[in-house]
């Protein structure tokens, strides 16, 4: 008797399988958690893969220091509920230690996160890192493997990727290398929201419509904050907005939206005519290849 299997069931099962493969084949995995919707889904998938036992890995947040306060609050609450261990790797510390320098005139710390992440991987000797990246986000990612090898400098070599067949993942690495693993590679933004709704997962409040002081820069609505003062010609408006992604406050744009619950968001995503990165990430628009370049350097 053939039975009903929804696309979410199939995607979920695939992701659980991937997480268990990592737990079984690596010594020291870690799960990256940004507080955003994709990593929220990862945490639920980890519960599905490993409960009633604890996760066989800690959770790590790469903290840019430019956080939405709502997201930090959510992060701590969620981790406490799960009873799992949280590591916070701080970009501010990398700056203070002189590992990275902020570019004059560029408030975004997005690119600086790479160094903080690689340093933390080295410090804790992680050999595998779960990330919430999806292939539908961006064209360089469309070709990235689920098990994506990084050399000892954390770099990705798109031309030398290992073939990936069936559900057989090759977890062999050499000392110093590590594996980035993307369990939700095959999910779209829509799948993520449908899953969050189905599982009734909590997300940070900034995903829902709220009033906020924003100003226009590079075609995006940016939130005013201590990290990002508006310029003299940039008028501040109070608008009803929400966020489609959660990132560094200085380069994550809000969208004008009345969506107040999951159902509204799903309708909005269904009707959206602009990709989430195109709408809300200033750093991706710079060049046709900017994501590929950052990924080669070791970015998420």
């Amino acid at each position: 008797m053939p039975y009903e299997l929804t696309h979410l069931d199939a995607l979920e099962s695939e992701a659980i399988h991937i997480m268990r493969e990592v737990a079984a084949e690596f010594e020291r995995p870690v799960l990256l958690f940004s507080g955003g919707k994709d990593s929220i889904v990862l945490l639920r998938l980890a519960e599905k893969a490993f409960r009633p036992a604890r996760f066989p890995f800690p959770i790590m947040h790469i903290d840019t220091g430019h956080n939405f306060p709502e997201v930090l609050e959510f992060r701590d609450r969620r981790v406490a509920e799960l009873g799992e261990r949280l590591i916070v790797a701080s970009v501010q510390e990398s700056i203070d230690k002189g590992r990275v320098r902020e570019e004059p005139g560029n408030p975004s710390r997005n690119r600086l996160q790479t160094t903080t992440l690689l340093d933390a991987i080295l410090e804790h000797q992680f050999d595998s890192v779960f990330g919430g990246a999806r292939r539908d986000e961006e064209k360089a990612r469309a070709k990235e493997r689920v098990f994506s090898l990084r050399d000892e400098f954390g770099q990705w070599e798109p031309k030398a990727q290992r073939p990936e067949l069936w559900s057989l993942y090759n977890g062999k690495i050499r000392r110093g290398q590590h594996m980035r693993v993307f369990p939700i590679s095959n999910w779209t933004e829509m799948d993520v929201w449908q899953y969050i709704e189905r599982e009734n997962l909590e997300v940070p409040s900034i995903y829902f419509a709220h009033e906020r002081d924003v100003f226009r820069r590079d075609g995006m609505w940016l939130s005013t904050s201590e990290f990002l003062p508006n310029g003299p010609d940039e008028a501040v408006e109070r608008m009803v907005v929400r966020y489609r992604t959660v990132g560094d406050m200085t380069c994550t744009g809000a969208v004008s939206s009345p969506a107040a619950n999951f159902a509204d968001i799903i309708l909005e995503v269904a009707a959206a005519r602009i990709t989430e990165r195109g709408a809300t990430r200033a750093d991706d628009a710079f060049s046709e290849t900017s994501m590929e370049d950052r990924k080669r350097e070791g970015y998420f």
């Binding site: 064209k139 360089a140 469309a142 070709k143």
Partner: peptide
């Protein structure tokens, strides 16, 4: 997809859509 492919004008890897 990738830059090399754009430069050579061919598809050389599996891309998922």
């Amino acid at each position: 997809g990738l830059r090399a492919e754009r430069e050579q004008g061919i598809t050389i890897d599996v891309a998922y859509r």
